[in-house]
Design a protein around this nucleic acid. Structure first.
Lengths: 121, 121
DNA sequence: ATTATATAAAACCTTTTGGTTTCATGTCAA
DNA sequence: TTGACATGAAACCAAAAGGTTTTATATAAT
């Protein structure tokens, strides 16, 4: 097992709000399709398709138990999100550049006076 | 400024690989459309559309300078990604649950023997 | 054996996406 | 003022997304 052709990647998988909701549901406990469906206003078939996409992205897996299929979350691939995020926001020169260039506006970070400067006003 | 109707959100914006590449490019320095286009094999028009989507998600902004339009990155909204990621992976009971239930397989985390147990074999 | 549940699979439909090509417009350079 | 850029905007297209409905199948419960 290794190189999977992966028709759907994590980024695509989480692009849809319904799919994000499903993941949230499954983060609490594993659930059969029917129960997942009950949380939404769309058809069971539609949910099944969403689950298929999520499982292609390896974010969930389903096992059949009796007549129902029970899905469980596999949060691992979400680390790609963090990676992507970090590419722009963590320990990166570009962030410093951004802050310097903009003076920190809108950066979510601020250039603040040092401790020593702040104390004793 | 506040409630923006936001036709495209961050998740949708980064769903497309080309768009992710564009963001990467812009993380180095701001660039005019033509130059961005030169990094891809698709038309300038297509790139312009991608930029529109990115700017609807407020991930980039463009200013017109002379005859060219220069785009710059606005990484702030990407924090939504981290938020989403953290929802599943950080400081969450569900993570512990997941680890306990699976014994840590595929979790990216492991249950290892404590220091004292490990020492002196 | 019969019926109700839970899902699977297929066919179909509409809207959105990701592209293209074509034409118009503003700006810089000769 | 005449081109040569750099874009903007519109029309058009094929394929993918997100749904629905219908039909079939396996399993549980009576």
């Amino acid at each position: 097992m290794s190189a999977s052709a992966q028709k759907h990647d994590v980024f695509q998988a989480i692009a849809d709000p319904t799919r994000r909701e499903v993941l949230k549901l499954l983060s609490e406990r594993e659930l059969p399709i029917s129960e997942i469906t009950s949380h939404f206003s769309i058809s069971r078939t539609a949910i099944a398709k969403h689950l298929k996409i999520l499982s292609e992205a390896e974010l969930v897996s389903g096992r059949k138990e009796g007549r129902e299929k029970i899905y469980r979350l596999h949060p691992e691939p979400l680390s790609e999100l963090k990676q992507f995020y970090d590419q722009f926001w963590s320990n990166r020169l570009s962030v410093l550049k951004h802050i310097v260039e903009t003076g920190g506006e809108n950066s979510g970070l601020k250039l603040i006076p040092s401790e020593t400067e702040k104390k004793e006003p």
